[in-house]
């Protein structure tokens, strides 16, 4: 009679091919990050149109990062938004990461766009604000790998900002009773983040921006604390 937590990972993007061999895909990074939850992870390649049959197929849904913009015209985005709303209505829980953070906001009535602040890269520190009682004691800070130029610009109704920085106003959102989303990447290890930056250096990313981001790689992140927070405080898991 083993009932383990069912974690469904909605895969919305893939790591560069040359890095995937060493680091795995995003769902496996999520599985590693959330391993202390002792849950069973099922992944769904929603970017290929492979959606779960029902929001009830998992207790906790995770939406990964992606190179796509949520405002772009990709065939999987509208059904994903619909799935997010159905999961909320079904009383399931959800955690959104980067693109996942943005698509949750968009699905629930917020707006997302490119930031005029440009790329956020490397370890970013965010300050917890208005920390909800449901999530226990506020951590001193939230510190995560960042890799984005889009940001949530308008909050969906009912969403609460719980962490913020000068670079990113809406760095973490709390949807009471439903979920949590973060602009940073709690599933990234510094080695992957570092190699990802290098792989885009001089093409997508300016070399000096990459160098600046590389200099933050040694800073510890609070990725494991975030996993623990989800484990302990997520309602009804």
């Amino acid at each position: 009679m083993t009932t383990s937590l069912r974690i469904g990972v909605l895969e919305t993007g893939r790591p560069p091919e040359e890095l995937a061999a060493d680091h795995g895909d995003y769902p496996s990074m999520v599985a590693d990050w959330l391993a202390p939850l002792e849950g069973e992870v099922t992944q769904y390649a929603v970017l290929d149109g492979k959606f779960p049959e029902s929001p009830d197929d998992a207790d906790l849904w995770i939406i990964t990062g992606s190179k796509f913009g949520v405002y772009e015209n990709h065939p999987f985005i509208a059904p994903l938004e619909d799935f997010i709303r159905r999961a909320r209505d079904a009383g399931r829980k959800m955690v959104g990461i980067c693109f996942g953070h943005q698509v949750m906001a968009q699905a629930l009535g917020g707006a997302v766009g490119k930031s005029d602040k440009g790329w956020g890269l490397g370890v970013h520190e965010y300050t917890p604000v208005n920390w909800p009682d449901e999530l226990g004691t506020a951590p001193e800070k939230l510190s995560l790998q960042a890799y984005h130029q889009d940001q949530v610009k308008t909050l969906p109704e009912g969403a609460r900002v719980i962490a913020s920085s000068e670079f990113c106003d809406y760095a973490a959102l709390w949807y009471p009773g439903f979920g949590l989303s973060v602009q940073g990447h709690p599933e990234f290890r510094s080695e992957y983040a570092s190699q990802l930056l290098n792989s885009r250096k001089g093409t997508l990313l300016a070399p000096d921006e990459v160098d600046d981001a590389q200099s933050t790689m040694a800073k510890p992140t609070t990725q494991h604390q975030l996993a623990e927070l989800i484990r302990i405080h997520f309602p009804d898991l």
């Binding site: 795995g24 590693d32 391993a35 510094s190 080695e191 190699q195 590389q214 040694a218 510890p220 494991h224």
Partner: peptide, 22 residues
Amino acid sequence: RFPFGRFRRALLPITFLHYNFL
């Protein structure tokens, strides 16, 4: 294997690994 191997917790000397990589 957990794909990240010994990176599966961030407590090992990250700084050191980072320089290794560079």
